[in-house]
Nucleic acid binder design. Structure first.
Length: 905
RNA sequence: GGGCGAUUAGCUCAGUUGGCUAGAGCGCCUCCCUUACAAGGAGGAUGUCGGGGGUUCGAGUCCCUCAUCGCCCACCA
């Protein structure tokens, strides 16, 4: 029989040729869904963090979804009813902005011109046509989520859940409406929450303004970075301990330009050493002043319109933009001689996350959720260990936010989103309702006719926080909810720990942990998810965040096209260790590509040999026993790492086994007996041995494909399809095959023995390279074996060592005689020798030996010093001392041998 | 102002509870297109583990401190 490889497989790993077809097979086989009928099996569920419906896949998504896919594939193979539920988020502001922009560009119209209903139709239209780009991209990545259960946060059932949750909070008194100072986005013309703003350090000015005392006895100077807000000033504050406060507090000032009488008050929060020590108070437009004004009982005057321009309270400045007004007001103060000075000042400007324009704090009527009480169970969940973070340090971040949580402004002045389920009667008395209240119907409490529904919509996160259970049918008591909730694993980005993670846990306890229709096991009060995995940030090669505007992003889809989805997935996993940020350049995916190619070709080799006769028993040679032991150890290691969510460790173990053990040593070793059988077709013993080798090759490959599958699903599934049916058994598709259980294959003896052989082979290769023995030459190698184990190991496997070292002959001796005129190296099994040829230059060999000797002597010195130290002998563990003594003897022996070797070269 | 992370080979990173001569991939040097794979094989070189101090018989690992880089929170007008 001639060697041949499976004819269908190309020499190179060419993912584009099979990935789409493999994915289609999985979908056709309905492989992603858990069994329809719940059995007795354990469940494992993951809710995919829903990407924005406007989103396109970026590296963060690729990383996060690879993680989830690996976990779910591993659990699916391990016998769980595994559910990974996908979906998208309606992303109120982002989506509305996209469509508004499009409307303006294509039809030169605005949402206001269209009206609410027509505009929403446009958004839904856009969503249907462009909204699911990212889900398609996740398929390319290989995501094995249950697409039949795909959810959208504005689906009818999700909307119902949102209403029920709102009404419940309303009834419990956790939701309230009130005039509070909020972060106002003048561009988008909506309030945004504290978690949707950021600060940007900008160079600006600190203007010093003089406010004359009403009694004409002079003036007081205040400093401000926003002079235009003076139009809304209703007081000035100084610190009560400030020496000047005695003279000032109680007096009034004449506010210039608007000619208003405002009091001077004392407030503890004023920093007497900053600026002039006096701070103007604008309770309508500054969060700190809002608090101070409330303490002093000052009125609130709002001077800005929703678009940021000055309103009618601004007198002659009314109608100006905030920028224009600022200049005009400074000029006016200057004209009046009331401008005390201008200094350059670098300060933080509050910016809206969404529009990237400066936030104007302003007082307005909004809906809020009172958070403190709701936060308590979420705090307890983490503190009690029911909710674990990985890496654990993120728990602190989570707790810090919850323990200092502020009320959540949940109303948004948008149209795209869940409209607030509150109706008003003619006296503006509100009522929340799960079902629509018809205009004209009676208000349930007052009996007066309902006149309108609240115009605002809810913050997007007010639907996202229900995600783990609303996606399963909550508030209905569905079979899915009972079966798959709470979930086990959540993987997400660190920047939404507050926005999303903490709120989900709060919602979990607020809505699903009660004496409702759901019967939870009281001994298992863990809700939402038991592990929150915070994945790494993917940075560019310079360590900067990837961003659209900077143009430094790497497109995962392009990478998938170039390197293959498996290569992208595997690279991401081995590159990131436990949430440690990763600096990524496109060529880093070569690592995964090489690995995939290696798997591909190793499989081609094995498959090519499986065509011969296969025994039903394993080979019994040391390498057969060794590789099976290594496979068992690897399976254990990979399984444990995956259960601990240590993806990098699992990927590394797979790399080591696949490349170093299986390819570099086992396959090379196996060739010896396969070739022997080819060379002697009539030799029954050789044929039988080859048949056993094939069996081992096949079984090891089969299990290796299983272990690799979560990481490189396409490639392994494609190769699985090439395996002979007898190896696959009933398992037609790898995705639903059983995770290998390889207990019992451990074999410490084989591992020890093969390690000795491997060391001897390396010794020969080393000497050979140092002596620069030409490739064709096959000198007679000799080994001076040391120790019984080495002698038997080598004696029984001379042929194998020869094969691997590509030598002509090898003799094992133990009589202590050194062969003369030989190049030598020291191995753990003893000394290896290769005879000098006539023109041998032993210079390199000598240098190498000297270096080794130097290193060993250093080691000897170190240990001698240690063992000479009485305190070491007293304090160190007996085991450590014993092993040091052993080590010393070993090193001394090595040194001796090396010296002898040196003397003879 | 508070918190967190990072600093180990030329580059990117591992290094579990303190304990063999600190590892990997890429790059580099030598040899090899050996019939699975040149996206490969064999061999090799490369480290004052950011600085300083401390604890310890013993520190890359624990403590203190400093430096540099990055992130998060708070936000004084």
């Amino acid at each position: 029989m001639t060697e041949s490889t499976a004819p269908t497989l190309p020499t190179r790993y060419t993912p584009a040729e099979f990935e789409d077809a493999i994915y289609a097979r999985w979908e056709a086989g309905d492989c992603f869904a858990p069994p329809a009928e719940p059995g007795n099996r354990k469940t494992f569920s993951i809710m995919m963090p829903p990407p924005n419906v406007t989103g396109v896949l970026h590296m963060g998504h690729a990383l996060n979804n690879t993680i989830q896919d690996i976990v779910i594939r591993h659990r699916r193979m391990s016998g769980y009813d595994a559910l990974w539920l996908p979906g998208t988020d309606h992303a109120g502001i982002a989506t509305q902005a996209v469509v508004e922009k499009k409307l303006y560009q294509e039809k030169q119209t605005t949402r206001k011109e269209l009206g609410r209903e027509a505009f929403l139709k446009e958004v839904w239209d856009w969503k249907e046509h462009h909204g699911n780009t990212i889900l398609g991209q996740l398929r390319r990545l290989g995501a094995s989520c249950d697409w039949n259960r795909t959810k959208f946060t504005l689906d009818a059932d999700m909307s119902h859940a949102v209403r029920v949750s709102f009404v419940r909070l309303w009834e419990q008194g956790h939701v309230y409406r009130g005039a509070r100072i909020v972060n106002w986005d003048c561009k988008l013309q909506t309030a945004v929450s504290d978690d949707e703003i950021e600060y940007e350090t900008r160079k600006g000015h600190l203007w010093h303004l003089r406010y004359p005392l009403s009694d004409g006895s002079g003036h007081l100077v205040v400093a401000t970075t926003r002079p235009e807000t003076m139009l809304g000033d209703t007081g000035v504050a100084v610190h009560p301990d400030d020496a000047r406060s005695k003279d000032w507090v109680g007096k009034t000032l004449r506010l210039p330009l608007v000619d208003r009488e405002i009091p001077i008050v004392a407030d503890e929060t004023v920093d007497a050493s900053f600026g002039t020590g006096a701070v103007k108070l604008t309770p309508g437009h500054d969060p700190a002043d809002y608090e101070r004004g409330a303490r002093a009982g000052l009125p609130i005057i709002i001077v800005l319109n929703k678009d940021g321009s000055i309103n009618e309270n601004g007198g002659r400045f009314a109608g100006m933009s905030r920028e224009t007004a600022r200049e005009a007001i400074v000029a006016a103060f200057d004209e009046l001689g009331l401008l005390d000075g201008i200094e350059d000042y670098t300060h933080n400007v509050t910016i809206s996350d969404r529009s990237k324009t400066p936030i104007e704090p302003l007082v307005s009527e909004q809906w809020f959720v009172a958070m403190e009480e709701l936060a308590q169970p979420a705090i307890a969940a983490a503190k009690s260990g029911r909710l674990k973070f990985k890496p654990a340090r993120w728990e602190k971040v989570y707790l810090d936010w919850l323990e200092n949580v502020r009320d959540w402004c949940i109303s948004r002045q948008l149209w795209w989103g869940h409209r607030i389920p509150v109706w008003y009667d003619e006296d503006e008395v509100p009522v929340a309702s799960v079902d629509d209240l018809a205009i004209g119907s009676a208000h349930p409490k007052t009996g007066k006719p309902i006149v309108r529904q609240d115009d605002d919509v809810l913050d997007t996160w007010a639907s996202s926080w229900l995600w783990p259970f609303a996606t399963l049918g909550w508030p209905e008591q569905t079979a899915d909810l009972r079966r798959f909730y709470p979930t086990q694993f959540l993987s997400t980005a660190r920047d939404i720990i507050y926005l999303w993670v903490a709120r989900m846990v709060m919602a979990g306890y607020a809505f699903t942990d009660e004496d409702g229709p759901l019967a939870f096991d009281s001994e298992d009060p863990q809700l939402c998810f038991s592990t929150c995995y915070i994945h790494a940030n993917v940075l560019d090669a310079q360590g900067k965040r990837m961003s659209k505007s900077a143009g430094n992003g790497i497109d995962p889809v392009e990478m998938i096209e170039q390197y293959g989805a498996d290569a992208v997935r595997y690279s991401l996993m081995i590159l990131t260790r436990e949430g440690q940020d990763v600096k990524l350049a496109a060529n880093r995916f070569e690592l995964g590509q090489r690995f995939c190619n290696k798997i591909w070709n190793a499989a081609r080799f094995v498959l090519g040999h499986l065509e011969g006769e296969m025994a039903e028993e394993h080979g019994t040679a040391v390498e057969d026993r060794w590789i099976r032991a290594r496979l068992a150890a690897t399976a254990t290691e990979v399984g444990a790492a995956l259960e601990a969510y240590d993806f990098h460790d699992a990927a590394t173990a797979l790399y080591r086994f696949t490349w170093d053990d299986f390819c570099d040593w086992y396959l090379e070793a196996a060739k010896r007996r396969l070739r022997a059988a080819e060379d002697a077709p009539e030799d029954a013993a050789a044929q039988a041995e080859a048949a056993r080798v094939r069996f081992t090759l096949g079984e090891v490959l089969r299990d290796l494909l299983k272990l690799l599958h979560p990481f490189t699903p396409y490639l392994t599934e494609a190769l699985w399809g090439e395996l002979p049916a007898r190896l696959r058994g009933e398992e037609d598709l790898l995705i639903t095959a059983a995770w290998p259980t390889s207990a019992g294959a451990e074999d410490a003896t084989a591992v020890r023995e093969f390690d000795l052989l491997r060391d001897v082979v390396r010794g020969f290769r080393n000497v050979r390279a140092l002596l620069e023995i030409p490739a064709g030459d096959q000198p007679a190698g000799q080994l001076l074996a040391e120790g019984v184990e080495a002698e038997t190991a080598i004696a029984g496997n001379q042929e194998l060592v020869l094969w691997l070292a590509r030598l002509a002959s090898l003799t094992v001796r133990s009589d202590g005689e050194r062969p003369g005129d030989s190049g030598t190296d020291l191995t753990r099994a003893g000394g290896v020798f290769l005879p000098f040829a006539a023109e041998t230059d032993s210079g390199k060999l000598r240098a190498s030996l000297e270096k080794k000797l130097d290193k060993v002597e250093k080691g000897v010195g170190g240990i001698e010093k240690k063992l000479g130290n009485e305190r070491f002998l007293q304090n160190a563990d007996a085991e450590v001392v014993a092993s040091e003594r052993e080590r010393l003897l070993e090193l001394q022996r090595e040194a001796e041998m090396l010296r002898a070797n040196l003397a003879s070269v």
